[in-house]
Amino acid sequence: MTISVQPVLGSAAARLNPVAKMAAVLIQTLALLTSIDWVSAAVAVSLNLILFAWAGLSWAEFWKRTFPVWLAGLLAGLTTSLYGRVSGQTYLDIWFIHVSDGSIALGLATSLRVLAIGLPGVVLFATTDPTDLADGLAQILRLPARFVLGGLAGVRLVGLFLDDWRQLSLARRARGVADTGNWLDRLKRFAGQAFALFVLSIRRGSKLATAMEAKGFGSSSVRTWARPSQLRRGDLLIVVLAVAVAAAAIASAVAAGTWVFLLRNT
């Protein structure tokens, strides 16, 4: 599966300020981290899936970009179900594996919470241009320009690294080093190609750093920005929606009696 790193632009979500998107994701994350119940996470996931229809991603693009989050949620829930806290009726007890009512409930809550926290971040930042993000961080949050520009340059290089990996694969196949043999041979070829990409990335990073320094990006003087970054009504709307989703998730869990404030036990 080829994972795209290019932002999906042109939608309503793409026109929102990246700082407002970060605030929306942070609000939901902080709200969901206060408890580990499954009701609040399920409500947050359901509401977010409805809102994702306006993000501008097709279903194929949505599944392709969020596949790692779904996989991480599944693995986290499975691991917690096998090795989580034992309570209630026990269904399986072999060595370190203990499957019970408590571990299954905790595994479900963990899986849903990974999805509730991870999906909004992936979807919102899939519609964010890195340059717009850098403008927002520097002009609205007032982060240091050297840090922002360095991060922007690094993000821009990710797509080039993917292209370099494909070119290295084609070059090795042209020399007769194809993807054949047993798993050990494949692992050796992967390690050799990864080391070649690592060396290439260091060289490219050094050249880029020298070029940026020569063009004055490392100056300590006050920097001007070509594109102003401002917060608009739509940015306020997405923050309000994030607060509403977080409040609905917490209220649903409290009404269902599953809400457990984590700091209460610390």
Rank of each mutant, 00 (worst) to 15 (best):
T128I: 05
D132M: 06
D132F: 02
A134S: 04
A134N: 00
G136K: 11
G136N: 14
Q139T: 02
Q139R: 05
P144F: 06
P144L: 03
A145I: 12
A145S: 10
R146E: 10
V148E: 09
L149N: 14
G150L: 02
G151F: 07
L152R: 08
A153Q: 07
G154I: 02
V158L: 07
G159I: 00
L160P: 07
F161L: 15
L162F: 11
D163P: 01
D164T: 01
W165R: 11
Q167R: 11
S169P: 07
L170E: 13
L170W: 13
A174W: 01
G176P: 05
G176E: 00
V177N: 15
A178D: 15
A178Q: 12
T180F: 15
T180M: 11
G181D: 08
W183G: 08
L184S: 11
D185Q: 14
R186E: 09
L187T: 13
L187D: 09
K188A: 12
K188S: 12
R189E: 13
R189H: 13
F190G: 11
A191T: 05
A191S: 12
G192L: 11
Q193K: 03
A194G: 02
A196N: 04
L197G: 01
L197T: 00
V199R: 03
L200S: 12
S201W: 01
R203D: 13
R203V: 13
R204P: 08
G205H: 14
S206W: 13
S206Q: 13
S206H: 11
